[in-house]
Design a protein around this nucleic acid. Sequence first.
RNA 1: CGGGGCGUAGCGCAGCCUGGUAGCGCAUCUGGUUUGGGACCAGAGGGUCGGGUGUUCGAAUCACCCCGCCCCGACCA
Length: 593
Amino acid sequence: MLGAMRYSNCFIPTLRDDPADAEVISHKLLLRAGYIRRVTSGVYDYLPLALRVLRKIEAVIREEMNRAGAQELLMPMVQPGELWEKSERMEKYGPELLRFKDRHSHESCLGPTHEEVICDLVSRELRSYKQLPMNLYQVQSKFRDEIRPRFGLMRGREFVMKDAYSFHADAESLAAEYKNMFETYTRIFTRFGLEFRPVEADTGSIGGSDSHEFHVLAESGEDLIAHCSVCDYAANVEKAVSRRACVSGEPAALAMVETPAVTSVEDVADFLSVDIGLLVKTLVYRIHGGEHDGAIVAACVAGDDQVQEIKLAHVVGADSVEMATDDDIVSIGGVTGFVGPQQLSVRVLVDSRLQGATGFIAGANRRDTHVTGLDFGRDVPAAEFADLRETRAGDRCSRCGNEIELSRGIEVGQVFALGKRYTEPMEVVFQNQQGKRSVATMGCYGIGVSRLMAAIVEQCNDAAGISWPLALAPFQIGLISMGKSNAVRDASEAIHQQLLDAGIEVLWDERNERPGVKFKDFELIGLPFQIVVGDRGLKEDAVEIGWRQQQRRAVSVADAVKVVLSEFEQATSAETTVSEATVSEATVSEVTN
RNA sequence: CGGGGCGUAGCGCAGCCUGGUAGCGCAUCUGGUUUGGGACCAGAGGGUCGGGUGUUCGAAUCACCCCGCCCCGACCA
């Protein structure tokens, strides 16, 4: 009975209209085509069609992870608070970690990720370097209490993730596994036929040293990625480094200028009739976490740039930064609306693009006043220069000097070289070759499985609905019976059986519906191939076959299944050839740089 | 957390401004006619109008509170 399904017995609640509360295409289509239903904010039911696709995605991931030498296990969703205390993340992780007490008042949480649990497990069993390296992974539900779940499966609170954790005796071994996982991910996303890009990434709350994200390119993506138009450089804008020449002002003496009620850089530039790039934006932040938790700092960038807060946080050794309040600004000697870098009683970080800049305009820290002729070297001797600005389109690549472009991406995977961030506090130790106690070094590697399903829909759809790749479709074939004649029923039944015997997944639409309804439904749910059985064709002893949204052609009833199988074979072998070639090419160029 | 929008039948919506006891399309059910691209006719079922409090003779409609959903923002002084 493999794949045997009659439409009239299937739970496929399709909708004629787009649901009003869905915004992005994948959310709309997955709802309309009967794949998902919302249970509560950011939490969804996966209906039978969705589960079939999810299982196929997982199968590819498992296959590639296993091939890469990782072993699957399964860890719990509920985790004890002590582990998070031990890793020092109980406080740090913040409100995204859903905490609760069980009936014995035991502090617990729902796992947003599993570094703690896996480290706890491995620390208990690891004794010798001979057990290393090892890579353990699972496919499991995660819960993160997101500020704003949105876009359906794209940013849910509960979601399916493949997470892998590797343990090593030394940094070289970790580097090798990192590369191995990078290649594995490239292979996986290539097999899905996705247009994607690996990019350098910030390590975020997970911590560690080195990280790449894998982004599926899509307009609806929540991330911005910067990439060079010529070389391989690509990075999340949270991390991207690029160059742009600084607009240069004439060196001049420092002077005050009246700017009554003119505060924003745009307005000041207009008011003074100067290029916005000649202004200095001074932003005041309060920093959170790290050595200077709670301190206030000022950050300056050119008027046409934006402060990249994640970069700023790194520069000041904080976990995050937050815009200061008006009171904070006053307390450090600033005047809201007219803050400038001079005479502030806090650290002043200045974007390196402004190093050596002269003739700039900045707030004067005095009401309705700006200064002109600012020269950082001369007038702000305490300034500390660092890369603080966010890369924008048209910047120059810091590697090759060519133009930087920006794209939107959906982050579907990330690999981290964690080092000893977790193994140290969690005491994952072993005896090394010299018989000495040694702390293991660690990597972790995630793929958002449910998000990946949404990302695939974002790339694989048209006006009629979803257009699944053959390898991921919930059923490969939609078998449509037209009319109620015995001839149609018998021929359909026979073909249905032959397909099942051949191991093909087929959804047989034997409903008493008009043809238009059936075609629309199949196109909406996205089955890649159709076989149409009708009286018209049977008169000539023929049925029609064809790929979704393409012209169908007539083939004899007797040959139908054979012809379909050979079409599938061709399609599959074409895909594989492409994927092998692309994998090796992408791998070499990306990891080595 | 801030701003905006929304909440009326399974889905999409109207009605609300100007208070008088709920309607349209699709879907569903019954009967009939249809059957190669979301059929037609006739009939039927289905709604505590998100919840509460208040105003009023009377509330989907007005007021207040709460809940939920969606979008934007949570930064550019």
